[in-house]
Write a protein that binds this DNA or RNA. Structure first.
Length: 165
DNA sequence: ATAAAGGCCACCC
DNA sequence: GGGTGGCCTTTAT
């Protein structure tokens, strides 16, 4: 199978958001990464680990425009998520959840036709490369508790609160 | 080829 | 509240 790697003008930057500073990475093919790391060093490490063959160039201007579009204008720029077929099907299902609503890991598993793969669904959601835009924060446990979040439960809670309005 | 590690769940206590 | 076994994918041996 063929994966679209961020080859054409790969860029990155750190930008302020309503949920703390984000690390955003993109190319002419779209956004390939949007994370909310503890600090810039771990943000860079994460990029390095996931895109070991790509060297990103810092581009604060373009990133600032993107971040404004995302968090102020509510626009949804082109995405370029990279993963296995299983992961892509799940990340696609996440994008069908309307803003302000939540669903459960079980329902996502059912939505992709793999009702038994709930555990793997949780793992794949945890591997979501494009936070916020691929709304992994809208998935909670079937018992109503919040479940996990890669960048801390406080962040998950904050985004959900923010989306209620 | 195999093991270990997950943002889970149902079921028990 | 906490612990166990089962489930499935991914990553590291």
């Amino acid at each position: 199978m063929h994966y679209l790697i961020p080859a054409s003008d790969p860029s990155y930057s750190f930008q302020a958001t309503p949920f703390g500073e984000c690390c955003i990475a993109f190319s002419n093919d779209g956004i390939c990464s949007l994370t909310f790391p503890e600090d810039r060093e771990s943000g860079m490490m994460d990029l390095k680990r996931r895109f070991s063959e790509t060297t990103f160039k810092q581009n604060d201007d373009k990133a600032a425009r993107l971040v404004r579009q995302i968090f102020e204008d509510g626009k949804n720029p082109t995405l370029n998520p990279i993963g296995t077929d299983f992961q892509l099907s799940i990340w696609n299902a996440l994008q069908q959840i309307p803003a302000g609503e939540t669903t459960t890991y079980v329902k996502i598993a059912e939505a992709i036709g793999r009702p038994k793969a709930v555990r793997a669904v949780g793992t794949a959601i945890g591997a979501n490369p494009i936070g916020f835009l691929i709304p992994c924060h809208r998935v909670i446990r079937s018992d109503g508790s919040l479940g996990g979040f890669r960048w801390g439960l406080e962040c998950k809670k904050a985004i959900l609160e923010w989306e209620k309005k």
